[in-house]
Design a protein around this nucleic acid. Structure first.
Ligand SMILES: Cc1cn([C@H]2C[C@H](O)[C@@H](COP(=O)(O)OP(=O)(O)OP(=O)(O)O)O2)c(=O)[nH]c1=O
Ligand SMILES: [Mg+2]
Length: 625
DNA sequence: GGGCAGGCCATAA
DNA sequence: TTCCATTATGGCCTGCCC
């Protein structure tokens, strides 16, 4: 039943659930529905297997498992902590809120961030129509024809995220950002060291101009000073804006402090957020959703309250339990968290140790003693992917792949990543079926050409018989090497050289790990083919990739001197890199004095994407001299 | 038996 | 007419090589 399609009249309650489900079902394409059905069937099959497995279990087995589980529970109880104040903060309708703040026209209408193919999120007005994150825009438009869609502006979201993080930092310097819009904090130290209430200036705005946030609202708490008003003309809309200034004081209780954090976030960014406060992050995260938007929920940190809370908690509310796990658990009678404890025997006998351990932690309301976000570790993968209208044309596919590789090469640079050892290609067929093909390289993959070399080989195999039609490609790197990590087994210049060298067909696959030695700025890398025993030695200098570094005295690129020193040592070289034609000429002159010359000299031109490889013959050498 | 490479799946925002 | 995204993390499985 629909009370009002416009969504603007008073008393509008939105579309009802059945209507929403019907419209979504009617709007979905056949291919998508088939894809969904397939995953549902897979899940059903898994549940079926699981049930069979359980039916085979004897009472004795289950009882024994329950006893073992009780021991585990006792152990976990010992780990329970309730004296720390954990907080999870999550921005309200984050991307949408940023867009609404920056464009008043979007504030009073149902709107979403994304495009016709996919929405990242929607504002609360649009949510009444069933429009939400992860919904295709064209379906959202059927649910809500007047929906206003805005494209994504990641730069703005990153800026806002950084601003709120600065506030959080003051309450927990070890905070962990779970994403752009959420933070995990432990404010115990702040609570303990806080000696009393804190007072902050508050500025709100009213008047004809609505450009600046936050606006004065009836729901705002009363300030503890008489508000003073100052009138000014808005430079953007030219209307009058009245800044209302007063002060607000926050006490020292957990709830007061979190209110203070949320207040400061809104003052600083014009954005609201919601918070959960509890004995651990698992519970805090669940609680941050309970009073959304612009609210908070404090779950008392005592055993009875926590146990009680967990009894009725649906498993799906727990972060980490998604549709598949929910479905599986439902199949064995687990819907609420208390069922974890009830079914502990079966869980122990049918799930992995990691899983049942975690299920018990959830059932007891203990959570992961640690943080759910692993802040300490460095990024492990970097990737990009793109969807397109389905095609099987190799030319088109390769073109898309090349573009992805180029973009990835740029992205890693701006992330201080030199390269990665493993490249993975993600493919999605027109049926939405996903596959990945990956290859670990013996040396670092850094440039777009190196990426494309490997990725195109992987893709070629899947394109061969023309049976596959694709709708998405992705390229990613893992086993990353960051530029500030000094322990570089093979530097960027060397990998470029190796890549160019091997492209000439001297050595196929089956390479052993390269060994690299350093001598000052020079690196000597040896790499051997396991089968043919052919050895390649590569000399390179970090400065090859850093043209700014020059020998001040002689005003020459340092590589010259470095190479000379190297050559004097009379080491055999098969492959060498120089940075420009001048370097090459003088290097060849030096090499002429030597018995063994490189088979290949590679000119690395920082301005060029392609790398030029020169095979040096005696005659050519003469010419180059 | 362990460790690694390559693949799939689940999850989250 | 468009016709279900993108980026990242972690578990688990299989096959292979020690
Ligand atoms: C769930 C989801 C979020 N996002 C983005 C857009 C969201 O604004 C942002 C934060 O996600 P969420 O916090 O899940 O959602 P939200 O902040 O928009 O709304 P809520 O008030 O319920 O917290 O992450 C995606 O890009 N894809 C997704 O599937
Ligand atoms: Mg949010």
């Amino acid at each position: 039943m629909v009370s009002d399609y416009s969504g603007n009249k008073a008393g509008f309650k939105g579309l009802d659930k059945e209507k929403i489900a019907r419209i979504i079902a009617e709007s979905s394409t056949a291919k998508w529905k088939a894809h969904i059905r397939e995953s549902e069937e897979k899940l059903e099959a898994r549940v079926c297997e699981l049930k069979k497995e359980i039916a085979m279990l004897s009472d004795g087995q289950v009882r024994k498992a329950e006893n073992d589980m009780d021991e585990l529970i006792a152990e976990l109880e010992g780990e329970r902590i309730m004296d720390n104040v954990f907080v999870h903060i999550d921005m309200d309708a984050f991307y949408a809120a940023v867009e609404m703040r920056d464009d008043p026209k979007l504030r009073s209408v149902p709107m979403a961030v994304g495009d016709t193919s996919m929405l990242c999120t929607s504002n609360y007005h649009a949510r009444k129509f069933g429009v939400r994150s992860g919904m295709p825009g064209y379906i959202a438009l059927k649910l809500c024809p007047q929906l206003k869609m805005v494209g994504v502006n990641f730069t703005k979201y990153r800026k806002a995220s950084k601003e709120v993080q600065e506030v959080f930092d003051e309450y927990d310097e070890n905070l962990a950002m779970g994403s752009l819009d959420e933070a995990y904090m432990n404010i115990t130290n702040h609570v303990r060291s806080r000696d009393g209430p804190r007072t902050f200036d508050r500025i709100r705005y009213k008047g004809d101009c609505v450009c600046r946030f936050p606006l004065v609202s009836e729901n705002d708490p009363i300030g503890n000073t008489v508000p003073s008003e100052a009138s000014e003309e808005c430079s953007k809309c030219k209307k009058t804006r009245i800044a209302v200034s007063d002060q607000l004081t926050f006490g020292r209780s957990d709830g007061d402090i979190v209110n203070e954090i949320r207040f400061r976030v809104e003052q600083k960014t014009g954005l609201t957020c919601s918070a959960g406060i509890a004995a651990n992050w698992m519970l805090a995260k669940i609680c941050s959703d309970l009073n959304k938007p612009n609210g908070q929920y404090l779950l008392e940190r005592d055993y009875a309250t926590i146990t009680n809370f967990v009894q009725e908690l649906e498993v799906r509310k727990v972060s980490g339990i998604g549709p598949a796990t929910e479905g599986t658990l439902k199949g064995i009678g687990i819907k609420k968290c208390r069922d974890f404890i009830k079914q502990r025997g079966i869980l122990r006998l049918t799930f992995s140790a990691i899983s049942y351990n975690w299920f018990m932690r959830v059932g007891l309301g203990i959570g992961n003693g640690a943080c759910m976000v692993n802040e300490k570790q460095r990024q492990k993968n970097i990737s990009n992917e793109t969807s397109f209208s389905p095609t099987k044309d190799p030319e088109t596919c390769m073109e898309i792949l090349r573009r992805l590789c180029k973009e990835l090469a740029e992205t890693i640079k701006s992330n201080q990543i030199v390269g990665g050892k493993t490249l993975s290609l993600t493919l999605r067929k027109s049926t939405f079926e996903r596959m990945t093909r990956s290859k670990q390289n013996v040396y670092l993959i850094s440039t777009s050409n190196q990426m494309f070399n490997i990725a195109s080989q992987l893709l070629f195999k899947e394109l061969e018989d023309g049976r596959n039609e694709f709708r998405l490609f992705g390229v990613g790197l893992s086993k990353l090497q960051f530029s500030d990590e000094d322990n570089k087994p093979v530097n960027a210049a060397t990998t470029t050289m190796l890549d160019t060298y091997f492209k000439q067909g001297r050595i196929e696959n089956n390479l052993n790990q390269p060994e690299t030695y350093y001598d000052g700025e020079i690196s000597i890398t040896k790499i051997e083919n396991r089968q043919t025993k052919e050895r390649v030695e590569v000399v390179s200098n970090e400065n090859v990739t850093k043209p700014k570094v020059t020998d001040k005295k002689h005003n020459k690129p340092i590589i010259r001197g470095a190479m000379d020193r190297f050559v004097q040592k009379d080491m055999p070289i098969k492959c060498a890199g120089v940075r420009n034609q001048t370097s090459l000429d003088s290097f060849v002159t030096t090499l002429n004095k030597r018995k063994s010359e490189p088979e290949l000299i590679i000119i690395i031109d920082d301005d060029k994407d392609e790398v030029e490889g020169l095979t040096i013959s005696t005659s050519k050498k003469a010419k180059l001299c």
